[in-house]
Design a protein around this nucleic acid. Structure first.
Lengths: 372, 372
DNA sequence: CTGAAAGCGCTTACAG
DNA sequence: CTGAAAGCGCTTACAG
């Protein structure tokens, strides 16, 4: 190769693209590869002048260090994994999008792991997946067991959880018990007595639920107990977290001998299904039935769904920041957020109270709209 | 190290997790590292017996080859990048989820690139991002320029496009012109004459639009021309691809001196916004106004939105398969899908035709429901 | 501030 | 079928 050929352009017979290595840059800049490496990574101990010259040559040649080589040499991947049950749901897409943004901002690549089935989850944790691939991992809406967390640790992973808790990892979660309580209190204040809970069922060990849905149920039960209302199993219906699941659950509730007059639904998507069935059944909302969802899904506004907002975008940013802190040597932190009620148009007093505003059966009638 | 210590357990002072290398496996299995490497990757030239023994030892030790080292040695990353404008929209989440699934199934990792702003897009293409990081990239809803594609090629990337076309890459797209035509014909057949188009505006070069929305507009225009209907600029309204954007667009249409009686909306999310405003304005759908969307968003069913389905899940699988084909040495293929009308409850004959079913002004009245 | 050299952990001709 | 050795392209003590 002639001395003037500074770019070490290797053309493989099959591939055929150009590779620029440290050596090319070093050669043209008239320094050693060590200096190039140091100059380009802003490592102290390089004169300003040299740094600039090297940078200029690198830019000119379009040089970028081979990630594989850097990783092998440093042991750091500058990559974070995100584990999520499913992407095509608004909550998960939002959270992953926000986390990804924060991570890339901080110079990390993000590797996506969609664990939609119990089998996928099992395989993920049963084999060495992350070692050498990522420096840390964000796990969304999955409660890893102690063994699973240990496996991740043995693979050198920092871990941050969203919607799950553990003493061994950073975590951000929402106070779902309090949120459930607040949601049901809103319905109680409106005068409802037969209030149903529509929850998320973990389909044969599927990962779509996690802990939060269970906490929302606890909040519901606490609120009912607080109001000294009988709790009937039949008023708690569980199904998959989808429009269809919500539709199925409300259908089961409507055929009860004593159907409820309101429902607290553990996710907005299920609540959309509830609304759909209500509409098809000819029941007016909220005149005949009140519906309260959870998430503050971006489409709530379209159908006027009253819901619990838990700052989904912020959750994604938080969990990314938490992981970055750990990666930067900090201790795993635990963050908790609270949800707030967003009243729209699907909740109101029960029918009975509308016709007999201050009858003896409605002691709360004066304060029905207290929180509207 | 005593001979019995077969696991090369390096404990770094700061990190402190265990690393199992080829050498550990080789030592314990009583073979060379070359043999371990070959045995574990099913490379021909290893006896069945040796292969099994090595495999057993590897399993026992929990060995997994260091990706960085493999990549450096082979030059292949076994990783694919997915570039998407935004994850938190149903269409993109769905497509990315499906593609990711197919890719991981084929043994590839997936790296996520969310390019939400023109600045991010520009930066992505202006610098060497993918070289050594991925073997190929799937680009969704972005039309890369020739230079951008050349840059990717020079970084050794195979590329597959979704919702864009190029002779230099594999691509899957939908015949959006035909879809737009079919959508508007449906409205024409119902008897509408003043039909609006609500389209996606590329916010100052944002990437959220791409080519498909423009093709839908072309389909609209062709259908209007076909019906010999005057095309007024004012009937074409563009806004951002969101509920708010749709709401803004329909608001502008409703204040026209001669407002339309129907709208073909380039995305379901915008159509949801249209529906919302219509409801707030007190206009009944479809009695007073017909709305036809695009995507067959999973929530269409909830509000009864008539729309164009373009098999979103399949698009994601297709584009992944296309890229895998190229990665396996195949030629870049071009796939085209067609959309189909899904009639629900937001489209019907215009008000005039309902009151005067067979008046002189409604020549199509007999066939209004022909395609329902 | 700079450079020569070892080493990161694999894969793969090459030789046997 | 198996092994010794070179090489992938960086980074980083170490020496100057």
């Amino acid at each position: 190769m002639p001395a003037s050929a500074c770019v070490n352009s290797t053309r493989s017979p099959t591939i055929g693209y150009m590779v620029v290595s440290v050596e090319s840059v070093a050669e043209r800049a008239g320094v050693s590869v060590s200096t190039v490496s140091r100059a380009l990574r802003s490592v102290p101990g390089v004169s300003m002048e040299t740094r600039k010259r090297v940078q200029a040559v690198a830019d000119e040649l379009g040089y970028a260090a081979s990630p594989a080589a850097s990783r092998l040499a440093t042991g750091r991947t500058m990559t974070v994994g995100i584990v999520v049950p499913v992407l095509a749901k608004w909550y998960f897409g939002k959270v992953v999008g926000e986390a990804t943004h924060a991570l890339r901002e901080a110079g990390f690549d993000v590797l996506l792991y969609e664990l939609a089935t119990p089998g996928q989850r099992q395989r993920f944790f049963a084999t060495v997946q992350l070692y050498g691939r990522t420096d840390g991992v964000i796990i969304i809406a999955l409660q890893p067991s102690r063994e699973e967390l240990e496996s991740l640790a043995s693979q050198g992973q920092a871990v941050a959880l969203l919607g799950a808790e553990s003493s061994a990892a950073g975590s951000v979660s929402v106070d779902n018990v309090a949120a459930g309580l607040a949601a049901v209190r809103h319905l109680l204040n409106l005068g409802h007595k037969r209030i149903a809970f529509v929850g998320i069922r973990d389909e044969e060990g599927s990962n779509l639920g996690g802990v939060p849905p269970l906490q929302r149920l606890r909040g519901y039960r606490e609120a009912m107990a607080e109001a000294a209302l009988a709790q009937e199993d039949v008023l708690e219906q569980f199904d998959e977290n989808s429009v269809a699941g919500g539709a199925a659950a409300i259908s089961r509730l409507l055929v009860l001998k004593q159907p409820p007059t309101a429902a607290f639904v553990a996710s907005d998507e299920m609540a959309f299904g509830v609304l759909k069935v209500l509409r098809q059944t000819g029941l007016a909302v909220p005149r005949d039935f009140s519906v309260l969802g959870f998430d503050n899904h971006e489409l709530c506004d379209v159908v006027g769904l009253t819901t619990m907002d838990h700052e989904v975008a912020e959750q994604g940013q938080d969990v990314a920041r938490l992981l970055l802190d750990i990666l930067h040597g900090g201790h795993p932190a635990v963050l908790s957020r609270s949800a707030r009620l967003v009243v729209r148009e699907t909740t109101g007093p029960p029918r009975a109270l509308r016709t007999i505003p201050t009858g003896p059966d409605s002691p709360h009638s004066a304060e029905h709209f207290g929180d509207l």
